[in-house]
Design a protein around this nucleic acid. Structure first.
Lengths: 334, 334
DNA sequence: CTGAAAGCGCTTACAG
DNA sequence: CTGAAAGCGCTTACAG
């Protein structure tokens, strides 16, 4: 079966390619009913389907956007992506998803790949090492939106959780219940990744507001692999923490592994509160109290802003940081 | 910033477009060192990046494959997709992922969209209502591979878990531990979806081999929303089940919700075994025994077969069903 | 109301 | 060793 092209349809219907093209693009202004029917029939009989590659080349747009997530293993990413897809579907846009695995080189290659594929715009959960590349894109008025992370020196719209609020919700709900020896474990700060820093800052602020003494030995920013040992160490302390805040879903999982292995009873022996409303929170034993990020809203907003930029003839360079509000999911682990 | 094209580079370097194209495609056979350097420089100075849309139009291939998953909410899908991406990356292929949400219409639209985008091949977790469309693709020698589901009348390679083995592993491990009142809950069979049917068949076979009487009132194929009521009903029975097999990850979650709500103790009051090694199995309380599908191997095999077909000049129509072996993850819930 | 022609940015056989 | 020319399958201004 050879590929059927517009030329074949035109010939079969006895009209010109231009007319077929008009038909496909629903520009029926002056088209006679007869022509319309003949083209419709020809398309059906030949089983024609248009080549959008050719169309994109000519039109210089692809109706496709690219999404580069920093790490697809976080539930946060999948949920945000889901929302982006919904909004794009509604607007007849397609989405290509790439996973940078928190690797700036991979991120760079994906940006180049997506540019080569002529996507109309980009939503990125950025790493912090491609600042220059991002600046170039912005200088070229290329539609770009960041999610989750603010990069210094990159003047672009960013949509993220209000991380300080998230930690205030967490700390306040623990303090209300009388917890004082509160520990926070986040991923490493060295990489200057926004949520981590903001969550730590938020933690300090909220603790101060509650006038709880912060014990520096209970605040850790470590790699996933180190969570276990940091935790063992803290639990072996003379005055161990009575409550634990997990900075994200994967840290929470590490914590729960140890809780399980040691048979620690939640919340009697240790209260556990996670940032990110993991899927198993509801039916875990006990059900886990979490702070849910507004993932759907973040994805929705990011897609809406990006599509708006794409539709504008000339993207203006205004930009803004949108902090969306998290929600406490009070369950039984604190 | 205007888009730089190959013509600009050629002019800047003082050579023809053909030569630039040769350079980009690393056909250096006869190219003088001088020319090479001039082109290299021109590319850098102008910040040129090739337009792969134009390239694809000319070459009639995109080095991109499409993947249509039946339902992205299953961990199974994400894991298989991850493997597909890895293999494609290694082979410089790109992947466009679409989620059909178990909706044949959506599936059809995605197939058409991906065809329009001229993807070089398709990996599909098929619904059973687009038989004709699939047959057309095959008749046209279009590279196609199915994952997870066999569709009657569609002669194509299928990669899936050996579902009968999966249920034999499940049943045998329960029987070994003395369980006799074993219940199975799967998703509805009406849709003729392979794993569901095979798992049920596998259950019957394994139970017979073990010479355990099958109680039909403990075998259910129901919608996700009905899992709760079916379960309540069974547990209220005079002789309630002592062990429960969840046909997939989402059914398992429904079961665990009820277990949690009623404070049922696992495995003392009820043993629970899930098909699909969910991420929380390891640190759940108690850790959950599961049968893990060989997700990575399935994705890898599917991608390898598809890429092989794409590289063959003329796809032959041989086809085969590959059943890959599942693995029992023995933990503490049985 | 419809068609001929140019052009999107590449690649590739062919000529020299 | 390099270039001129044709063509991939569309869209679009323009002419009639």
């Amino acid at each position: 079966m050879k590929k059927i092209t517009m030329a074949n349809v035109a010939e079969h219907a006895g009209v010109s390619k231009s007319t077929v093209s008009q038909y496909l693009n629903e520009r029926f202004h002056y088209m006679s009913e007869d022509t319309k029917i003949r083209i419709e029939l020809a398309i059906k009989e030949l089983g024609y389907s248009p080549n959008s590659i050719a169309r994109s080349l000519r039109q210089k747009r692809t109706s496709t956007i690219g999404v580069i997530v920093s790490n697809i293993l976080h539930d946060f990413s999948t949920q945000v992506v889901r929302a982006i897809e919904d909004i794009c579907n509604e607007n007849s846009f397609h989405v290509i998803i790439c996973n940078a695995d928190d690797d700036p080189d991979k991120e760079k290659r994906y940006i180049e790949m997506l540019q080569a594929k002529q996507v109309d715009g980009l939503i990125v959960f950025p790493t912090s090492d491609n600042t220059e590349l991002f600046q170039e894109l912005i200088a070229a008025h290329y539609p770009l939106v960041f999610v989750d992370r603010v990069i210094e020196g990159v003047a672009v719209d960013v949509i993220l959780t209000d991380n300080e609020s998230a930690l205030r919700l967490a700390v306040d709900s623990l303090v209300e219940r009388g917890y004082k020896e509160i520990s926070l474990i986040t991923a490493p700060l060295i990489e200057h990744i926004t949520p981590r820093g903001e969550r730590k800052d938020g933690f300090y602020k909220a603790m101060n507001e509650q006038q709880i003494t912060i014990r520096e030995d209970l605040v850790h920013s470590v790699q996933l692999e180190e969570v276990q040992s940091v935790l063992s160490q803290m639990l072996a302390d003379e005055v161990p923490p009575t409550a634990l805040i997990a900075g994200n879903d994967r840290i929470l999982q590490e914590i729960l592994k140890q809780v399980q292995a040691r048979g620690i009873s939640i919340p009697n022996e240790l209260a556990v509160l996670g940032i990110d409303d993991v899927r198993f929170a509801e039916f875990f034993n006990p059900p886990l109290t979490t702070v849910a990020q507004p993932t759907y809203e973040i994805g929705k907003k990011a897609a809406e802003i990006l599509l708006h930029k794409i539709k504008e003839a000339h993207t203006n360079l205004d930009h803004q940081i949108y902090r969306l509000h998290p929600e406490l999911k009070l369950r039984a682990s604190i």
